[in-house]
Design a protein around this nucleic acid. Structure first.
Lengths: 232, 232
DNA sequence: CGTTCAATTGATCAGCGTCAAACTAGGTGG
DNA sequence: CCACCTAGTTTGACGCTGATCAATTGAACG
């Protein structure tokens, strides 16, 4: 790892509570790397050699069985993945691929386990991050199992609108095919879901979205903090 | 907590690595309780006051939204639930109910967080347990999203058979309606799945199951360690 | 201009839930 | 001993959700 990379990662949630001497130890063992989109970073079944931290970009976690494939979660900076596999010294249960140009830190799993026992701040950060991952997965699963595709889209738009200043109009910042995957549906189905939201005052013009009747959309979406609030 | 309860719980995976003096501290704060079947232990949205440990019995974790309900996981002894919520001081994301007569230990979340910082053995056990919960949820989600109802039943039967000595015939140890819920389907659908397995040499007589052509069943089920192996 | 790939649209189908009805088995009380 | 009740189970009919396949449109780019 180069000197110049260090400031970028010192402040990551997982590492900022760590004692300086331990952080130095870690940086000597860690890698930082840039990846183009659509690169498969890890494959399920492989031994978990590295804990991955997303510094920039987006990574999709997915799983396969018998020629079928499903998206399990999407990790954005500053998230991490495979904390659990690293801790347990067990094989990956999911594969990961970049969705866009991304920058990752790779920490050798062995060092993660060592640091966990010698650095209290890091131990605290690991357990917090692991809890966050667990709860994110629970919320994701609830979203998928309890809501229809249309309801998932409606809630996504409401969250997006809130994140972009609550203006009536805003831009989608990802391709629709990726959005479809992120929402757990096919691109065809997303097209239909978009049309199905028209009666609720939602109109699309390319990547431009306009919500003209927020109340009607809320009535359909029925957002719940126990599913939609990322901070919880 | 009574003196007589202590031996039962000293050896639980979450507690056995703990220093004696810390364990004593904990037992003075913890509760141990028996519950009849079908009792709702916690409800999603409530503050997470206690970490729960299943000493005996079975607990179902489920979630609701907008009058719909879905099973998220099933916890058997010696499992735990709501570790993540306890650590994060966040509200429960799932509700829990007993499926059968069960015996639980309740540890106040505040003590869990305190002990985590002062007892290394406990910290290690917590992070291991949390990782296990996470990975169990991932496997569960893969099972549900990648397999059809029939395939899930086939894999369940194969696992069950292995657990009961690999005999050709064995008994289901739970009601079919509970099995249906555990496998993420309706009782009606389970009935149909059972019939659909007949061509693969599986016959039911009440709770008695007979697998006459294990090879055919395996060909359908295609079990994978990354989904079906509880130890991974 | 063609080439390419995303996005849309329509037709069709598989999986599974819902509803209602029939069937079964295990108790209970006359 | 039998009629009756209840709850779990099974069966059939039906509909909804969403995937798949194929064809078309649209937009970006060399």
């Amino acid at each position: 790892m180069k000197e110049s990379d260090i400031p970028d990662i010192r402040s990551l949630p997982l590492l900022c509570g760590m004692a300086d001497e331990n952080f130095d130890l870690l940086t000597r063992a860690a890698y930082i790397q840039n990846f183009p989109p659509q690169i498969e970073l890890i494959s399920e079944g492989e031994p978990s050699d590295f804990l991955h931290i997303v510094v920039d970009g987006t990574v999709e976690l997915f799983a396969k069985w018998n020629d079928r494939e499903t998206t399990m979660a999407t990790v954005r900076s500053p998230g991490t993945f495979i904390v659990a596999a690293s801790i347990m010294q067990s094989p990956y249960l999911m594969s990961a691929r970049t969705l866009e140009k991304s920058r990752l830190v790779l920490l050798p799993s062995e060092d993660v386990r060592t640091l966990f026992t010698i650095d209290k701040g890091f131990a605290q950060a690991v357990v917090t991050e692991l809890s966050r991952c667990y709860r994110t997965l629970v919320k994701n699963t609830k979203n998928l199992k309890l809501r229809t595709a249309i309801e998932r889209l409606a809630n996504y738009l409401i969250r997006k609108q809130a994140n972009t200043g609550s203006a009536q109009s805003f831009m989608l910042d990802i391709e629709k095919r990726l959005l479809a995957s992120y929402l757990g549906m096919t691109p065809e189905n997303l097209s239909r879901a978009i049309k199905a939201l028209q009666p609720y005052g939602v109109s699309f013009d390319g990547a431009q979205v306009k919500i003209s009747d927020a109340k009607a959309l809320l009535g359909l979406a029925k957002p719940s903090p126990l599913i939609d609030n990322a901070a919880l």
